[in-house]
Design a protein around this nucleic acid. Structure first.
Lengths: 158, 158
DNA sequence: ACACCTTCGTTCGAATTTGAACAACAGGAG
DNA sequence: CTCCTGTTGTTCAAATTCGAACGAAGGTGT
């Protein structure tokens, strides 16, 4: 029986979906990276840090929590927050209830930088992805990839 | 009029699609990277190099062409091909019709490595992405992201 | 109070990625 | 042929990323 040792390979449709996903992801990242760097001097990762902080209560998040949201390593976040701190866009604040804890907090300057960088970034995301897809495609994408993300986040923690 | 200076922000549905896409992409890459490294000692990028070579006529591709398929920088590819060459999985061969040209060619050992690594990788892609989605979702994803990729590849070249 | 296990953020070294600069060549236009 | 423009792959320095190891606390059970 072929199912014993032979894996279930991807059929053409599945392969097309997978290839499209990988290609779109890489190409999109590339473009957004360039645009943000040229336009605002920020990397995509740094921009995302500012976004997540601005969306959080008190414009601040614990380092670990922020690392989870960004899907990056803790050490990687430490590095980037230090970079942003040097540029005055983010500040570190110690946590009252836990001596080990560190809050990353958006500064006024960071908020201003985000206000300046966001329009161009959103416009490009719209041009390259959102406006290319129909309303139905967007809904399916949100639903499907939302489920994929949710599952991935689950068996990551235990 | 708000349309003069105010950008068109993403509505909740659009935001969900964009967030889902970014999160799924990052989480997926993370998992595949770990699995490949532990299972075969390959990075996802290196694995993709082997895949693209094995799918090419003569199991070989020009460096630039390969870099385009992988959506990576030429210098990045130079580095990775050198790594793979040291491990005997890939060989460089000069191009007959163009003295500057360099072919990256899959070796027998590289083919064997791919044969060994592919099943586990495909199984994980299936478990984490393909089998999570319905047939319809897969079709939409292939169609939509295929279009997105195609457009991105176009205004990259000129 | 004590040992034990987990969590928090950082540090460290190694690996990887990038863009710019480069040298060598290809492919015409004149 | 000769100049010009575009390509090709590599090199280089700088920036970024990751995982493992770490010190310092938190939390729990006894």
């Amino acid at each position: 029986m072929s199912s014993l040792n032979e894996p279930r390979w991807l059929d053409p449709d599945e392969m097309a979906a997978w290839r499209g996903f990988v290609a779109a992801s890489n190409l999109l990242n590339r473009r957004l990276e360039r645009q943000l760097k040229e336009d605002s001097g920020l990397s995509h990762q740094q921009y995302e840090i500012l976004v997540h902080l601005s969306a959080a209560p008190g414009d601040s998040l614990r380092m670990t929590e922020l690392a989870d949201k960004l899907v990056t390593s803790k050490s990687g976040l430490t590095y980037q927050v230090t970079q942003l701190e040097r540029r005055g866009l983010v500040a570190r604040r110690s946590c009252p209830s836990d001596v080990r804890g560190v809050f990353a907090e958006l500064t006024d300057q960071g908020r201003e930088m985000l206000r300046q960088a966001a329009p161009g970034h959103v416009a490009l995301v719209r041009e390259l992805l959102i406006d290319v897809l129909t309303r139905e495609q967007l809904a399916v994408l949100a639903e499907g990839l939302g489920e994929v993300s949710a599952r991935l986040r689950l068996d990551e923690t235990p």
